[in-house]
Structure formats: C-alpha cells, structure tokens
Design a protein around this nucleic acid. Structure first.
Lengths: 159, 159
DNA sequence: CTATATAATAGAATAAAATTCATTTTTATT
DNA sequence: AATAAAAATGAATTTTATTCTATTATATAG
C-alpha cells in the first residue's frame, strides 16, 4: 500500500520551514512577527509540522574540528547481495561514525559518509567495524581534502 | 581522550553539544537540569560555544519529500585547474540546490551533493547551472536509490 | 447561494523560561 | 599560600511559551 504523499503545506508553513531551517532556536514571538501572525497561531502550526513529520528534528550544528573530527571521507562499496542489501546497509548505519548510508545506482551498491579524527582512526574504523559488516565485496575510500560547502538546508519552494 | 586543539572544551561543554545536537530547541532550564547546573551558568556556556564557533548554528531538519525534493544525487567531477580549483568550487557552492561541495583526493577533483525534485529537474540543473561553472572537464552523476541513514550529529568525545 | 461544519487565528490570562547582575565559589597561576 | 581569572549561584526582572475561549476564515454539501 502506497501512502499518498500529500503534506498540504501552504505558504505560511513554507515560510516557517524557511525560517526554522536557518535558525531553529528562533522564538515563537519572533516567528510570529516575521509571519505577521500571533504567537499562539504559529505555535499550533509548528506543532502540526512536527506531528506530520515535515519537521523531523532540530539540530545544533557542531564544528567538527572543535571536537577533533578533522577527517571526512566517502566510502563506496560493492555488496554481494545486489538487491536485498538491507542487512549490509543497516549494519553500516549502526556505526556511530557513519553519518550517511545511501543505496546508489551504478557500479557500486552503497555510498557511505564517515567522519573520524584522522587517517589512523579511519583505518581503525575500516579494520574494526567495516570488516564485520556482512557481504561487502569491495571498498573504495575517497578522502576529502577540503569542504567548500556543507549545508543541510533545503531549497523550500514558494508554493 | 584528550582534545589537542585550542577550543578547550571540558566535559560540561561536550555534554551541552551532545544534548543540543539531538534537540536544538531544548530550553536552558532543561539543559541546566540535565547538567546539574543553574540556567544562567548554562546560558553563559552556550553563548561562549556560539562565540567560539564550536556551535555553528541551529537547523530545523526538514523532510525533503514534504517539500517535493525526492531526488538525491552525488556528482563527482574533474576540473581543469587541479590545485587552484577554488573558482570552480565556489561557483558550485553558489548554486542553492547544491548542499555540499568537497575537494577530494583521487582521480576526480570535486564531490558534490545535490537535491532536486526529480530526474528532470536534475537534468535542468546540470544543463542550466553546472554548464556555466568554469573549468569542468567531466561529470559523473550517481543517483541515490534509497537513503538508509542521514544524520549530521557528530560523535562527541567523552573528554 | 446559503447553511453548516471544520479549521485557523486573535487576544487575554497564566505559567514558564530567558536574561541580567551582584555575590560567592572554584580553578588556575605565580 | 596569595592572587587573578573564570565559572557558578541565586534572586529579580523581562520576555516568551502555553493554554483557553471567542471570533473569523475556509471549505463543503444541499
């Protein structure tokens, strides 16, 4: 059964998303001012957006260097189970240092984003964690030399 | 684990980061309770973390499907300027649909993360925007079929 | 078009939280 | 141990969140 994907967001909802994407700690009062509404009305909408899973959560963005996570890497890998590769994927997802796991089209099967302290800790991660994940046939690690842009904000449509 | 950088974060700071990473809209009062501190003390620390650029920002995480961004793709590309490739990178970064731009080691030069409505809009993006970016020699687009994990939270060390 | 149901907003009252600041305590340095 | 610097406390004040009811707007069916 396919659930119809109707979130029915009006332009006020979209404006809320736009504002909260940029500053999740904005007060209801300030939101209300920006939207030309009253705080209670805004609160109701925000709660509804949370309930409808339009807003999935609120995250503080932490500087990776400040917590000694200086290395970013993308790892693409092939799996033995080309289609029912969910075991492999969910095992990868369990590793805390793994930020992203994507099933991809093309030669490989997964693309994984990992953050570690340095190349030594990446090596340790590959040796200690990835080696335990079942059905991995090959691994190709790409080291990030510099991150020019990294934002999670989406382009929210006008209407 | 001792962090050897000049951010000098103690275990209380790290606990704040851990809590705010998971819920950026947590109140100072609740933070204080969790940390066994008084709200004013916590507020001071949070402000200091913001000022020191340890906390870079607070973002609401929006469900991409709810705003009709159903396609995720990674694009790796080669550049004509192999080292002074900053022009190319910053031009790519200007494109709103581009969430990430990384300079990478290896055969290619950049890895770019893009979110669009569908394959047609990705095609339009490549045709209308990427084509204008200077010094791109080749482009390899990888479509994401399914995202198993996608979190920006970092693994905050204990101390 | 109008009656009616439904949803959203306004506005006021109250509870809760944020913020400020003077004082005290803790921590680090000499 | 003396001193300086940093951090925490606690009370007072300002601001915001939250709740609730009345009102307004929107959609739907007859």
């Amino acid at each position: 059964m396919v659930i119809e994907n109707n979130f029915s967001l009006d332009h006020v909802d979209l404006a809320i998303l736009r504002l909260m994407q940029e500053n999740a700690r904005i007060s209801n009062v300030d939101l209300a001012k920006a939207l030309d509404l009253v705080p209670s009305a805004v609160l109701e909408r925000v709660k509804k957006l949370e309930k409808k899973n339009v807003i999935i959560g609120y995250n503080a963005k932490v500087n990776p260097v400040a917590v000694d996570l200086k290395l970013l890497a993308f790892i693409s890998m092939k799996s033995a189970q080309s289609f029912s590769c969910n075991d492999t994927a969910s095992e990868l997802a369990k590793i805390p240092d793994v930020q992203e796991v994507h099933v991809i089209a093309g030669d490989d099967c997964f693309l994984v984003k990992v953050r570690t302290t340095d190349s030594a800790s990446l090596m340790a991660l590959l040796r200690d964690e990835f080696s335990k994940v079942p059905n991995i046939l090959s691994v190709k690690t790409t080291i990030v030399l510099e991150t020019v842009k990294e934002q999670q904000q989406l382009v929210i449509p006008q209407k």
